[in-house]
Nucleic acid binder design. Sequence first.
DNA 1: TTCCTTATTGCAAAAAGTTGCAATAACATA
DNA 2: TATGTTATTGCAACTTTTTGCAATAAGGAA
Lengths: 143, 143
Amino acid sequence: MSCSQEYTPQLRARGYRMTPQRHAILHVLCHSGKHLTPSEVYAKAQKQVAGLTEATVYRTLEFLAENGLARPSHVGNGRLVYEIANHEHHHIKCRNCGDEMEVEHTLLKSMYQKLESASGYQLTDSHVTFFGLCPDCQKSENV
Amino acid sequence: MSCSQEYTPQLRARGYRMTPQRHAILHVLCHSGKHLTPSEVYAKAQKQVAGLTEATVYRTLEFLAENGLARPSHVGNGRLVYEIANHEHHHIKCRNCGDEMEVEHTLLKSMYQKLESASGYQLTDSHVTFFGLCPDCQKSENV
DNA sequence: TTCCTTATTGCAAAAAGTTGCAATAACATA
DNA sequence: TATGTTATTGCAACTTTTTGCAATAAGGAA
Ligand SMILES: [Mn+2]
Ligand SMILES: [Mn+2]
Ligand SMILES: [Zn+2]
Ligand SMILES: [Zn+2]
């Protein structure tokens, strides 16, 4: 509720509207400390907004991502997941056991600058997932 | 044909089999210098293997990726695309116009090492897509 | 070459995600 | 507060991707 209220002026300023559906979905994202699939978001938000449809959830998540309020993420299964955009970070995920950890953006900062000067691009997104083997899976060599 | 033939022993060594379907799909990937969607792969491979189904294409692309012969990639629309795994590289893509360029892995190498020592993970995948604004789109400020 | 094991495929149904369109409702304006 | 504009939603049809299962065929062994 309160969490989503702060976003209202941001949307208004861009000519968009705050709706009960967006409130509920932002609320769900705010209070879940992890990545959620669209259907997980739907299951939770549905309890607050009767009649909410999955189509609206998909459209809203994409909308929030485009406007910088949510971050989409690819966690390796080909499906998109989302989280609230409140701090810059990246992820490392284990290809073997699925274990995942956050990585501070500062670790990539100088590489981002190198990429920008080498390419001429201005990098806007700070939410990347890297894949590898976690310490445990390296030991056991479970391939 | 010839291109896919070289992969046969690799598959055999792991207990897998080479099939006309895998031949055709590897052939398609080998001779296309770019990322292909599953349905693009299907459209091309179908011409060589009568009766090929899309389900097989999806399963084969995933299989090839798991075995390091193909690389899946997220290009920002939530859909996976694939390419043959023959050289290490990454991508930068423009959020505005969709323009895309390759990035050599050497530019990320020291960051990869930093990530590995900070996390304890051993990074295995070298195919990441970064997003930003290309030089042209920065000028015109088309948001 | 023939036989046998089982990895792989095709099929069809299900699940996930997208889209066009008419009805609704947010909110700027008066 | 009442009104008008149009951003947003729900619905339903559609496309894309996944999955269980029985039939097929790759390829090792005899
Ligand atoms: Mn995240
Ligand atoms: Mn690539
Ligand atoms: Zn692991
Ligand atoms: Zn651009």
